[in-house]
Nucleic acid binder design. Structure first.
Length: 492
DNA sequence: AAAAAAT
């Protein structure tokens, strides 16, 4: 079948290898992964911080929080005769001047990241093949598909031409914000298709049809707009699935996603499908390759997936009270200058319980989960993104994709396990959760709370799966170990 | 069971 190459720092520096007669082409190209400093949002957030300690010190930011570019290997497999040349600059991509301006002026980007350099030519070069793309957390996948959508839209044609489906409302909104910023000078119109009011209020029947050129939203709303013919698919050129492995998983949104895909393909056979995620387990990978035909693909080995710049630790604790004590005394007490913190829990009840405990102890924490009404969810995310709150307790609603550069510490208060089989870790969720820290190669730390033998077993499986040992904090009762850990992670 | 969104 297809041939596989790895892009490594040692591989050739230009172009692709010669065509292999009649079969597949190789992609073998070296790309530096010097991530662009995302200064725009950072400066804004820093200005609005009300806790001095939360601010990233402008003078030391580069040394302290931005690690060396990772030397990650991405496996690329392409099909057909189309040659792709990695884009070392955004100019290589034949973008409109308006779009380039958005990248430089609004986004403050300087050059494509590794995944961008490789995937963008694949997305933008006719005959516009489908693409399955895996890349590390925080490596700039959003830019890939947002830029892909913007560049393929015909600005003169006022109808939906690009559609992006995301697993949560929050992620849809975040992606929309990126799109609007990047596309600011293009005049391209966009609309976010997510539920607006809490519950049972079907206004969509009485709304005008969508004329926006790019639509981003959640499966249910999109499905409904399509079945009510408010969202036409006739001119659709690109269909993006963000967090694609989850969107196509059986316990994810497989049914909705397939339905949307098929409805589009029924009217429009040449709509390009782009699948992006940091994780694709074997089951999903196999399924996905049946869903899309004649696609290019980019994959990362699971052992290469944990971020180098992220230090992971485990803390052995005797009981639940100790968990709360550790959060309070070992982390919140000395965490004042370690940036923002997300504490992940497995259930809404666990979230509320922890929230109550910490508030009773006098800490200002906020909590988000799917049972809150939409207005509250929006408010809590906004406050956190604006730097008004330091500590956020969350269920897996924010496990994927949530991008807040100032998050340097993630706590797994509960370890993620599979629902069907509680003694199996949920490896993908683990990776996504910890990926909320260490965005764009920044330094970060993860604390995993281990309370039972079962927890310990789960943790060990995670360590061996990703082949990345997780250091143990010697004693939960002493401050020292936590200080050492945070220093080691570069946060203190 | 987290989540989306509808029944």
């Amino acid at each position: 079948m297809a041939e596989v190459t790895e892009t490594t720092a040692a591989s050739s520096s230009e172009g692709q290898k010669p065509a292999v007669p009649e079969t597949k082409r190789l992609w073998s190209d070296e790309v530096d992964d010097e991530e662009v400093q995302p200064s725009a949002t950072e400066e804004k957030a820093v200005l609005e911080l009300n806790v001095d300690a939360l601010a990233i010190d402008e003078n030391t930011k580069v040394n302290k929080f931005l690690d060396e570019p990772e030397d990650s290997r991405i496996q690329a497999v392409t099909t057909g005769d189309t040659p792709y040349t990695s884009a070392s600059t955004f100019e290589d991509l034949n973008l409109s001047p308006e779009l380039l301006k958005g990248l430089y002026v609004e986004m403050k980007f300087q050059k494509p990241s590794k995944i961008q350099a490789i995937s963008l030519p694949m997305i933008m070069t006719p005959p516009y093949k489908d693409l399955i793309a895996q890349a590390h957390n925080g490596s700039g996948k959003t830019t890939c598909f947002v830029l892909g959508m913007l560049s393929r839209v015909d600005p003169k044609q006022q109808s939906p031409q690009a559609l992006c489906i995301c697993p949560t409302r929050e992620l849809s909104i975040q992606n929309m914000e990126v799109l609007q910023k990047m596309g600011k000078y293009t005049g391209i119109s966009s609309e976010c298709a997510v539920p607006i009011e809490s519950r049972n209020n079907d206004r969509s029947r009485y709304r005008p049809p969508i004329s926006a050129q790019v639509v981003i939203g959640t499966p249910g709303t999109i499905k409904r707009l399509m079945s009510q013919k408010k969202l036409g698919v006739n001119d659709m050129k690109v269909l993006v699935f963000d967090e694609a492995d989850h969107m196509l998983a059986k316990d994810g949104f497989q049914d909705d996603s397939l339905r949307i895909m098929k409805d589009i393909q029924r009217f429009n056979s040449h709509c390009q499908v782009l699948l992006f995620s940091a994780t694709f387990d074997e089951t999903v990978k196999n399924f996905v390759s049946k869903v899309v035909k004649d696609y290019n693909q980019l994959f990362v080995k699971k052992e290469d997936l944990s971020l180098e710049s992220l230090k992971q630790y485990k803390v052995i604790l005797p009981d639940e009270l100790a968990k709360i004590r550790v959060v309070k005394d070992r982390i919140l007490e000395l965490g004042e200058n370690i940036g923002q913190i997300i504490i992940f829990v497995n259930t809404k009840r666990s979230a509320s319980m922890l929230h109550t405990s910490l508030v009773e102890l006098g800490y200002e924490v906020t909590t988000i989960h799917g049972a809150l009404n939409l207005e509250d969810r929006d408010k809590i995310v906004k406050e956190f993104k604006d730097g008004l709150t330091q500590v956020l307790i969350s269920t897996d609603v924010l496990a994927r994709g949530f991008d807040q550069q100032q998050v340097n510490l993630v706590i797994n208060y509960d370890l993620p396990v599979k629902y069907e089989n509680q003694s199996e870790p949920h490896y993908e969720v683990y990776l996504h959760r910890i990926g909320r820290a260490g965005r764009f190669g920044r330094k970060g730390a993860v604390f995993n709370f281990i309370m039972t033998d079962h927890d310990l077993m789960i943790m060990r499986k995670i360590e061996s799966y990703f082949n990345s040992p997780v250091a143990e904090i010697p004693s939960w009762g002493s401050e020292e170990g936590f200080k050492v850990a945070l220093k080691e992670a570069g946060l203190l």
